[in-house]
Write a protein that binds this DNA or RNA. Sequence first.
DNA 1: ATCGTACCCGAAAACGTTTCGGATCGCAAG
DNA 2: CTTGCGATCCGAAACGTTTTCGGGTACGAT
Lengths: 332, 332
Amino acid sequence: MTVTIRDVARAAGVSITTVSRALNGGDDVGEETRRRVLEVAKKLNYRPSHVARSLVLQKSRNIGLLVSDFNRGGHHFMYDVLVGVHDKLAEYGYDVTLVSTNTARQQLISYVDFCRERSLEGVVVMGIRLDDPYVEEVVESTLPSVVIDLPLLSRHCGYVMTDNVNGVRYAIRHLANTGRQHIGFINGYSQAAVSIERLRGFETAMRGCGMPYSRDSILHADFTIEGGAKALAELLERCPETDAVFFASDLMAIGGIQHCKACGIRIPDDLAIIGFDNIELGKFVTPALTTVAQPRYAMGADAADMLVRMLQDDEQPSGILLPPELVVRESA
Amino acid sequence: MTVTIRDVARAAGVSITTVSRALNGGDDVGEETRRRVLEVAKKLNYRPSHVARSLVLQKSRNIGLLVSDFNRGGHHFMYDVLVGVHDKLAEYGYDVTLVSTNTARQQLISYVDFCRERSLEGVVVMGIRLDDPYVEEVVESTLPSVVIDLPLLSRHCGYVMTDNVNGVRYAIRHLANTGRQHIGFINGYSQAAVSIERLRGFETAMRGCGMPYSRDSILHADFTIEGGAKALAELLERCPETDAVFFASDLMAIGGIQHCKACGIRIPDDLAIIGFDNIELGKFVTPALTTVAQPRYAMGADAADMLVRMLQDDEQPSGILLPPELVVRESA
DNA sequence: ATCGTACCCGAAAACGTTTCGGATCGCAAG
DNA sequence: CTTGCGATCCGAAACGTTTTCGGGTACGAT
């Protein structure tokens, strides 16, 4: 049925050793023989079996893409990162297999064991949170891994994330430059690593602009539209003088916009709004959302790149911060 | 380093044959022996090597998810389908590896060969078009496959798609029921299979409602926002009496909305608009978009399900039509 | 004593590769 | 004539499993 190296050897009148060498560019095979072997291999449409090769080489050239929670909000984010990871890995000749944590299978065994079973050489992790039970495993295991959006660094674990601190600074600076005086901040789920970073960014940026702010003007929501709307309502009740709000995600910002529409608050005249993420949606809400863009595809590609360098050149893992970009539209 | 079946055998004082049998539930192994083997295996944290097993069983329990063009518009669509495919396959104990057609690697060898190299047992295909060179390969190859959104049926190839005809009918019926008299249709890229289906749906639905329409009121665009806007402009020029438009995609419909805003056309008073896809965006544009929803996750899950049944029970492939749903919001 | 019958268990082949350590040959050098 | 050597090739082991086939043991019946 399937044509093996033995078939090629027989058809070319040489040993399988010679076929292997001829195909893999080994040096001790005659020029004439190599030509014949290549020709026969092509005629038979021979494809070397990756699983047999993996077995003997003890390398699968296969890496896992671990998605901690597949059906969480950030579709766009996940998808773009995924494509970035795939493209870069394909470029290096690696395959990628999907690994999710929320299927019944993975509940039973640890994800490291899951990868060991499949001889995955490494793994790119995304969608994980600080309070996730996986964090410990990722950090301590010897399985090479790169985490997206969570600053985990160890002997075998690196990370790539957006430079949230500077991203927030761009936003705050823009608000200050356009004359806003009382800036509120609606942050995300407090156990998300990005929330911590963005809070730090907010505080340093405010201080950098010499702008006073009170604890009252910093709220937490849950990254959803409804959460954003509710949080904004509370913020405005606490601090009625607020004339600008920075949301830690576009979805929450859109919730904010909806709240304003419902209350007759004019954007950006009465209140300026800036989000974070640059989801496609933001371009189409009215007013169009000013936001901080993350280089999603690049995050995936860079993560893959770092993982490959760890595997091939056994480079030390590192932490990479990718520059965000302020996208000014109508809402601020 | 890694613990193999041999280590377990040694530690348990039995042969590797017995270990294999004990772990896989073979029947001719003593109860006491089995207990001991299981215990030792657990203590050593033994994980059977999938690649070794794949080699001897000649089955990889691994299926490919072929994405014809990763970075085309339909992010949401692709992602949801992907998750559906993954979840269902995980449930059955299959792994899924990503296969894309637009990397340099896949340009060199056919996708069937790509799958053969990796011993993939089957493949779910999405994002493919009628004029795609892959179509022929998918249909003719003996590699079990299920195609999303393209009605390809052969000995080893089935498909699952939304019931576009009925989806369109729901939309048209809604427009007719709300008193619209002159309905236009802006279709997508003509080589997309769904476009053909949707055109068919439009024609039968219009006839079903006893509503006259001219060829002039049917236009083609390219599934993009800009394309939708331009197409609507031309439609209104050709047929100024138009009081409702059905777009073959939400993105194009949103383009239509933008055009209306720019021209001062009121929605839905002057013009009713309905889209197709139910992308997240539609909920947030103003006016909120009325649209036909596709069961994206279910499409992926059903495709996976069918593929597994082909593999395990060698069932014949079939064509599955999933019911769409009309989501009425503000634009019609 | 012989036979049959369960019941356990192991040796070895097989899956398709890569690679190590020779083997053969021709030819130049001693 | 031996020796050495480069060039070219091959045999066989190894990777970690599953499975076929057969061997052994114990026990009861003939």
